[in-house]
């Protein structure tokens, strides 16, 4: 990847390309699932729904990326699954689903948390920010820009969590040195090993004094 951030036009082009790929995957896996579902499986799914009805759904209101949501949710739905499976906010990633990798990091009332280890119903009245809520229109957040500039990723799967964590790390005042950044970013695992570049990206935003 180039050391200079791409211009907005090519970012937009990339975005469209990725969305097209995602839509294709969604459609093709849905068709595959239908083709493979035997009648017995369909029946079992219906029974599951009947059992689910015994457990009352809970009304929940929250604000996600500045938009108000009034939802009715099963209590067992995690915040992560709500975002990804029900609201199509798939930027937040499911890595381990056990609070060990940080891929699911979002902000709740400004604080970073692991969205896989909290129930959506526990977020009543809260303000959630996900990776989709970080940029202002087409203008990337300074941390997003810095990640691109410093090549702060390889496969990209941990990146939304890394960026959400990095923004919080800067806002908390925990980006005073490379060692402090490493310690306070330790909840985000990158299996590609982009750590050095991630630290560089955060250091640059910190030293640039930009508002995050």
């Amino acid at each position: 990847m180039s050391q200079e951030p791409n211009n907005q036009e090519s970012c937009q082009h990339k975005k469209e390309k990725y969305e097209a790929r995602r839509d294709f995957l969604k459609q093709s896996s849905a068709m595959m699932a239908l083709a493979l579902a035997p009648p017995l499986v369909m029946k079992a799914a219906k029974n599951d729904e009947a059992i689910a009805a015994i457990f009352e759904k809970v009304p929940v209101s929250m604000e996600i990326n500045g938009k108000a949501y009034n939802l009715s949710l099963e209590p067992r739905v995690t915040l992560l699954d709500l975002l990804r499976e029900q609201l199509n906010l798939t930027g937040t990633k499911k890595g381990c689903d056990h609070g060990q990798c940080g891929a699911c990091t979002v902000h709740v009332n400004g604080q970073r948390i692991n969205s896989c280890l909290t129930l959506a119903v526990m977020q009543e009245g809260k303000k959630i920010t996900t990776i989709e809520g970080l940029a202002i229109g087409e203008q990337l957040h300074p941390v997003q820009e810095a990640f691109i500039k410093h090549d702060g990723f390889q496969c990209g799967y941990c990146t939304p969590g890394q960026i959400m964590s990095a923004v919080a790390c800067l806002r908390e005042g925990h980006a005073g040195s490379a060692a402090e950044i490493r310690e306070f970013m330790s909840g985000n695992i990158c299996r590609c090993g982009a750590y050095d570049n991630i630290v560089d990206a955060i250091m640059e935003v910190k030293q640039g004094g930009q508002t995050v």
């Binding site: 609070g99 940080g102 970073r112 948390i113 692991n114 306070f184 330790s186 909840g187």
Partner: peptide, 9 residues
């Protein structure tokens, strides 16, 4: 202990 995300919860 833990990570900042977990300590926030």
């Amino acid at each position: 202990g833990a990570s900042q995300q977990l300590r926030n919860m």
